[in-house]
Computed example of a mutant assay.
Amino acid sequence: MIKVPGPRTAAVLLAAVGLTLLGVPATAEPPAAAPTRSTVQVSTTPERLDVVGLPCLPGQLTLTMINTGSESRYADLFLDPTGPLQLSRDIFSSWLPATDPDQPVSAPVEVRVPRDTEPGDHKITLRLDRSRLDVPVRVNPLPGKDPGSNLALGEQAAASSTHGNFELCGAVDGDADSEHWDTLTGWNDGTRAAFPDTYDVALAEPTMINKVVLSTLDSARYPARSVGLKDWDVQVRSGAGGWTTVAEVRGNQAGRVTSTFDPVRADQVRILCLAGNDNTYSRIVELEVYGS
């Protein structure tokens, strides 16, 4: 016996058949929503970076996030380097308020490579939500250093202490302008009114040197006679030997002082800071070393 469906059952069956004929399963779920585009804009300055393999001359990259949405939010920007690139941070996290006009939030990142890195192209991938931004990074050859070059430029620095507002490498970065003092360039020790202090630079290899140029703080607002370095010794060391004093400076009131001495073989140079003109800190804007 064939059982004939009732009117209600037949209506349901017809509806299911109709949906199937239209290409839509009767039990289909609503389509998934498309991924929401991030409301945070990411950019870098510069857009392309050049670096060299000097320990105290890293590439400087500034990361910026801007919340363009209508709601405040917290954002994590992840940094993924390729090859030999070494970053001072691998994440930039910040609260991004929703404001009008949109307000940028920025953070610096230092990019380094080992000294023996071959020249070539690499990249840093920035990831936030579903967005990606690739920053090209070019590794350039090491700059040549002949006897007329500043042998301390970009080489590894060391110090007895460093003030929290300064960078250890600030006095070997090639910037001797006192107007860029404080967070931009230069070195300041971290022990107020306590002397002596030391600032060292390790040369790339043992070299015959005969001249050291020291720039201390000296600007219209902060003259050397008031806040600059007053007394110091220039010392050198070779291998495992001890430090040898090759020049002395006393009662200085100038911003830039050149000390010359008989040629000596050295792989490290030290400024032994004995006194400042205000008896508070040892301040060096730039330390330069030259070969004979």
Rank of each mutant, 00 (worst) to 15 (best):
L151N: 07
R192Y: 04
N150A: 01
V201H: 11
P147F: 07
V172Q: 07
A275Q: 13
L85R: 10
T99Q: 09
A34H: 00
M1A: 13
Q41L: 14
G18F: 04
V139K: 05
L63A: 04
V113Y: 05
T117G: 10
T185I: 15
E248D: 10
L57S: 15
R132T: 10
G154W: 00
R283H: 08
D278I: 00
Q156M: 04
L79D: 02
P263Q: 05
D129L: 07
G83I: 08
A171T: 01
V289F: 03
V201G: 04
T64C: 07
P141F: 03
V42R: 07
Y290M: 14
A171K: 08
E248G: 06
P263K: 03
D90E: 15
S43V: 05
G164Q: 08
P136Y: 03
L151W: 01
V257G: 11
N150S: 07
R138Q: 14
P31I: 08
D278T: 07
G83C: 10
H122A: 10
D182S: 13
G154F: 09
E118I: 12
A220F: 09
P101N: 04
F195I: 04
S38F: 00
V4M: 15
L203I: 02
K211H: 14
T27W: 11
L96Q: 02
Q235G: 10
R270Y: 05
L203E: 00
S292Y: 10
R192N: 14
Q103N: 11
A204P: 12
D175C: 04
V227W: 04
F261C: 04
R132K: 06
V135K: 06
G148Y: 04
Q268V: 03
P206Q: 15
N150H: 08
S94L: 09
E286A: 00
E110D: 12
L133W: 08
T68N: 10
N277E: 04
S93V: 04
N150I: 06
P84V: 05
T39Y: 10
P141L: 09
A16N: 11
G148R: 13
A152F: 03
M1N: 12
A275L: 10
V289M: 05
G120T: 13
V42Y: 02
A220H: 07
N67P: 00
A176S: 14
D146M: 05
Y281N: 01
G83D: 15
T39L: 02
W243Q: 12
V212Y: 03
S72V: 06
E286H: 09
F195S: 08
L133I: 09
T45Y: 09
D76K: 15
T198V: 10
N150M: 05
T207C: 08
A176P: 06
P30E: 15
